[in-house]
Design a protein around this nucleic acid. Structure first.
Length: 760
DNA sequence: AACGGATGTCATAGC
DNA sequence: GCGCTATGACATCCG
């Protein structure tokens, strides 16, 4: 059945290709994204979660009447993409960045070129990186678009032009905001990836140069290319006599296929192979309809570069939101090894409230001329099985136009911005299936995220928290062993110090964990208000040494020792949030005694207006601790409380260590006992074996005695009576024949056998 | 309500 | 003498 469906799907796609090639009006406009999204990137990209919200909410409810159109459109979009894909000689990786925006409007600093009005979701195409992977921030069309966009299908070109007008207006502000934006993103990015070090900084600077120097020119290229695209679309529409939708509906009637049709990858493969065999004519035929309208005079490679260049500022424009969603992908994309991961990460929703530090080093420093890497997700990856389009829904419409346009040139060495994954789009089983897949995708993606090595735990936690904001699972997940380990370990010992990995607890990340009012209280009263730069400095110098935890191997064994090390590890680089809420540490555990007890001291601290966190009080080295006290005007009561907190905190850890050692001793004794028992059993076995051996030897000796004695004869040749004689063995090995009365009759110093022979 | 485990806290010793 | 750790003893909470 599946094969049949696949067959129909493939056939349908091929028919669609042929129809488009023979001149049948293929009105792709309605299914293409607004041009401003294609060219300028999204002004507001929506996350998967947001898409869910739209599905579940007012904009697009799964049961809404627009679902048919919605899924039909998505299916059609898959065909369109498949057309585009046909000419791609090899696979490629497309990463979708999905994030949540509070609204569908402009995000980012004013004057950014991608800032558009209209409230429509935008498509952000983050094209280019050093490995050539095309990172795309996916979009779910905003409410203005509706599920399928049939009502706003004609808005593409106008929107495109309007976007340029707005760019013109904003151009003056453009450069002015660069520094601010850069600074903001740079700072946040470095916070987010402290391990990036100088290299990151260097990359970021390079990116900044591109952004600053190339921005206006990219704007111009943007306008030119956008106009070009709009003209081509208009031309295409004019030349067509049949709407694309009508064509596809006709095809669907002709080739009824199940909704569960498998992805039609084979189509793409076959056609691609065909195109490789006969590059020129076949590939011409297999080009998307738009290809015929592509101006051959254009230097497509240059245009490609322009496109990429245009998108660069958009990344910056969306700096904040891009970072919210794309920082991870950026880092991942820098490393081909993480491509799968990045793709998974790309589907994670993000909340606009979370301001992930924007790390421009990854986004912007990508050389445009860098060869794009054709990377298809490995079959082993869990991602390819995902129907990503199930997640993105209407947003998928937004990624067709640009790829089609860009792919219009035969032999263009630059891979198109399109995803083979989208061939799976037509297989949308049902709205329910889509939702289920979305949920599954969310879950799996997050698991993969968390598992991914190098992934920022804070980001994972935040992402997961947002993702599960309504599931109640976020905290549990965020406190997976990997997450709190740093905090626990960091607090386990004064020598270990806290926050060995400051990136684990970014400011937002730490707060993100909080779910109770204590965080607010702490912000208002203690940690925030009382924190001083000196504290930060000291803390940073004392607790940022890498490998702190490595010196505490036992910490790894204290996985169940939930409270020993739970004292809050805080990021020394975090000026505001020096302590994590107690809930961060005790959530996963049954007993929250430590939570409450810590809360007691913390409440005391708040009551006494202690200007720094208990973490700091407990974990600071004594020198820095005293320095901290001297730099604050504290009353005697405050000082006493602080010292008590420190004492109790340290003693608490000591007590836990002591108990842990006790347990270790007990375990060691238990093992010793077990070993002794094993040794005892072994000895008993040996004893039994020895006894058995002795018994056998006695039996043999007895037999031998009988045999020897039976062969003995007296002078008359008669057998010796056993009642009168017996054989006796001396210690020196001699065998004597003795009478029963004790007198030895015969002595033979020779060995036993010779003695017998002699007797004979 | 008693019981036991887990944990925090105090007092004290030792380094 | 100070700071820290280790540890016994005790208190408290909770299942």
């Amino acid at each position: 059945m599946m094969c049949l469906k696949k067959y129909f799907t493939e056939g349908l796609i091929q028919v669609a290709i042929l129809l488009s090639l023979v001149g049948v009006r293929v009105d792709v406009g309605p299914y293409l994204p607004a041009s401003h999204e294609m060219i300028l990137g999204p002004t507001s990209t929506l996350t998967q979660t947001q898409f869910h919200n739209q599905l579940d909410g007012q904009d697009l409810h799964p049961k809404s009447v627009d679902l048919d159109g919605f899924f039909t459109a998505r299916r059609l979009l898959g065909w369109v993409r498949s057309l585009d894909r046909l000419r791609v000689p090899s696979s490629e990786l497309e990463t979708w960045l999905v994030r949540r925006e509070p609204d569908a409007l402009v995000v980012g600093a004013p004057g950014q070129p991608a800032s558009l009005e209209g409230g429509a979701g935008g498509l952000e195409v983050h094209a280019g990186d050093q490995v050539g992977s095309v990172m795309r921030s996916s979009v779910v069309a905003g409410s203005d678009y509706g599920p399928i966009g049939e009502d706003n299908l004609d808005t593409m070109v106008p929107l495109l032009r309007r976007s340029h007008e707005e760019e013109d207006k904003d151009e003056d502000l453009y450069e002015e905001d660069i520094d601010t934006l850069w600074q903001d993103h740079s700072d946040r990015g470095r916070h987010q990836w402290p391990e990036g070090g100088e290299e990151e900084l260097l990359v970021g600077d390079t990116w900044r140069e591109i952004w600053r120097d190339g921005g206006p020119s990219y704007d111009r290229a943007n306008r030119e290319l956008a106009q070009d695209l709009s003209d081509q679309f208009a031309s295409l529409e004019a030349q067509s006599s049949m709407s694309f939708q009508e064509c596809l509906r006709l095809l669907e009637d002709t080739f009824p296929f199940g909704e569960e049709t498998e992805p039609s990858d084979p189509v793409g493969v076959d056609l691609r192979e065909a195109s490789e065999e006969d590059p020129t004519p076949v590939r011409e035929l297999l080009l998307s309809p738009l290809s015929s309208h592509w101006d051959p005079s254009l230097d497509l490679e240059q245009q490609w570069h322009d496109i990429l260049a245009i998108m660069e500022p958009e990344d910056m424009d969306l700096g904040r939101d891009v970072m919210q969603s794309g920082s991870i992908q950026s880092s991942s994309l820098m490393d081909p090894v993480h491509q799968d991961v990045s793709l998974q990460q790309a589907i994670l929703p993000r909340s606009s409230q979370d301001s992930y530090p924007f790390n421009p080093s990854f986004e912007g420093s990508v050389p445009l001329e860098a060869p794009l890497q054709l990377a298809l997700l490995s079959p082993s990856s869990s991602v390819p099985d995902f129907d990503l389009n199930l997640t993105f829904g209407p947003s998928d419409l937004t990624d067709s136009a640009l790829p089609l346009a860009l792919n219009g040139t035969v032999g263009n060495p630059m891979p198109s911005i399109q995803s083979s994954l989208f061939l799976e789009e037509p297989v949308l089983p049902s709205p329910l299936g889509s939702l289920l897949d979305d949920a599954l995708l969310d879950e799996l993606s997050f698991q993969d995220l968390a598992l991914e090595e190098g992934f920022n735990q804070t980001q994972a936690s935040q992402l997961e928290e947002e993702l599960d904001s309504d599931s109640g699972l976020s905290l549990t997940f965020s406190h997976s062993p990997a997450s709190p380990s740093g905090s626990e370990a960091s607090y386990s010992s004064s020598s270990s110090s806290s926050s060995s990995d400051s990136s684990v607890f970014s400011e937002e990340g730490a707060v993100g964990y909080s779910s109770d009012m204590e965080v607010i209280v702490e912000r208002e009263e203690g940690a925030v208000g009382g924190y001083s730069p000196e504290v930060s400095k000291m803390y940073s110098t004392s607790y940022q040494k890498p490998g702190h935890f490595n010196n505490l191997p036992w910490l790894e064994q204290v996985g169940h020792d939930h409270t020993y090390n739970q004292p809050r590890a805080t990021s020394p680089r975090q000026g505001k949030s020096l302590k994590l809420p107690k809930s961060c540490y005790s959530k996963p555990y049954k007993h929250d005694i430590s939570d409450k007890l810590w809360g007691r001291d913390e409440r005391r601290a708040r009551t006494m207006k202690i200007p720094f966190s208990n973490d700091l009080i407990v974990n600071l080295p004594v020198e820095e601790f005293n320095e901290l006290l001297t730099k604050h005007r504290l009353s005697e009561a405050q000082l006493k409380l602080i010292r008590d907190i420190r004492r109790r905190g340290k003693n608490k850890m000591a007590a836990q260590n002591c108990r842990r050692r006790k347990l270790d001793v007990l375990f060691g004794l238990e093992e010793g006992v077990e070993g002794l028992c094993r040794h005892k059993a072994r000895l008993l076995k040996e004893k039994a074996e020895n006894l058995r051996s002795v018994r056998e030897m006695k039996q043999r000796l007895s037999g031998l005695y009988q045999e020897v004695f039976s062969r003995l004869r007296d002078e008359q040749g008669r057998p010796l009576p056993t009642t009168d004689y017996s054989l006796q063995f001396s210690n020196d090995g001699q065998v004597l024949l003795a009478t029963r009365n004790g007198s030895a009759i015969e002595q033979n110093c020779k060995p036993h056998k010779k003695q017998k022979d002699g007797k004979k």
